[in-house]
Amino acid sequence: MPKIGIILGSTRPNRNGEQVARWVLDIAARRTDARFELLDLRDHPLPHLDEPMPPSLGRYQNEHTRQWADTIASFDGFVIVTPEYNHGIPGVLKNALDFLYAEWNNKAVGFVSYGGVGGVRAVEQLRLVAGELQLADVRQQVALSLITEFENYQVFKPGDYNVPALNTMIDQVIAWSAALAPLRESRALVA
C-alpha cells in the first residue's frame, strides 16, 4: 500500500496551512488505498541549505540532512500544501525541497494551494522544481481562495465542492506512485 506524505509547506506563525493540511489529511484518511502522514516542516527544522556538496551526489554530511533524507525516502508520494507568498512558494518549502535529490526521485506529487488567487502561481513554480527533482506532478490540483474558503482570511471553511477535486488529485498521486514503484525498486537495487 503506498505511503503518501502530506507536506505542510509553511512554518509562519498563525499560518492557515495547518487547517488546510488537516482537512487534506481528514479526507485522505477515509481512504483504504494508501496510508497518509502529515509532515509539518516545523517538525523538521532545516537551516538554509548548508551541505557542502550538491544534493544530487547524495553525500550528506549533516545529521539534520540525513534525518530529512530518511523521512522523505520512506514515502512513495506526496501532497504539498502551500500558500502563495509574493507570487511564489515559501522559502522554507523551497529549502526543504533543495536539501535532497534522490529521495524525491520517481515519486508522485500533487498540490493543494491557497492564497488570494488560490495559490496557483506558487504551484506553477513547484511544478518546475518537481520536474528537476524527478517528481511526477499530477495534473489535478486544489486551489483554495482566501476570499471564498476562509472566514476573515483566517478560519478555513472549505466548500464541499472542493472534495471531488481533492479526491481526484489523491487518486492521481496514488496511481502514479504505484506506477513509479518499479523505478524506485530498481534504483534501490543499484544502490
Rank of each mutant, 00 (worst) to 15 (best):
M1G: 12
P2L: 07
K3L: 10
G5T: 05
G5N: 12
I7F: 06
I7M: 05
I7N: 04
S10A: 11
R12K: 08
P13M: 00
R15T: 14
G17K: 03
E18L: 06
E18Q: 08
E18S: 13
E18D: 07
Q19V: 04
W23T: 14
I27W: 07
A29N: 11
R31K: 11
R31C: 15
D33I: 00
A34P: 10
R35Q: 15
R35Y: 10
F36D: 15
F36W: 14
L41R: 03
R42K: 14
L46R: 03
P47G: 00
E51I: 07
P52A: 01
P54R: 11
L57V: 02
L57D: 03
G58K: 08
Q61K: 15
Q61I: 02
H64T: 07
T65Y: 00
T65F: 00
T65W: 01
R66P: 05
W68N: 08
T71V: 10
A73W: 00
S74Y: 08
G77I: 01
F78K: 01
V79W: 08
V81H: 13
V81P: 05
T82L: 04
T82E: 01
P83C: 03
P83H: 13
Y85F: 06
N86T: 06
N86K: 05
V92M: 05
V92A: 02
V92E: 04
V92S: 06
N95R: 04
L97E: 03
F99I: 11
L100K: 09
A102H: 12
A102V: 11
N106L: 11
K107A: 04
A108R: 01
V109Y: 01
F111E: 09
V117N: 05
V117S: 12
G118A: 10
G119S: 01
V120M: 15
V120F: 13
A122G: 10
A122S: 15
R127E: 11
G131V: 10
E132F: 05
E132I: 08
Q134W: 05
Q134M: 09
L135W: 09
D137V: 11
V138N: 07
R139G: 06
Q141E: 03
A143N: 08
L144I: 03
E151H: 06
E151R: 13
N152T: 10
N152G: 09
Y153V: 00
K157I: 15
P158D: 06
P158A: 00
G159Y: 12
N162P: 03
N162C: 13
V163R: 04
V163H: 01
L166D: 07
L166V: 12
I170R: 13
I170H: 07
Q172N: 09
V173D: 14
A175E: 11
A175R: 15
A179M: 12
R187G: 13
V190N: 03
A191W: 08
A191V: 13
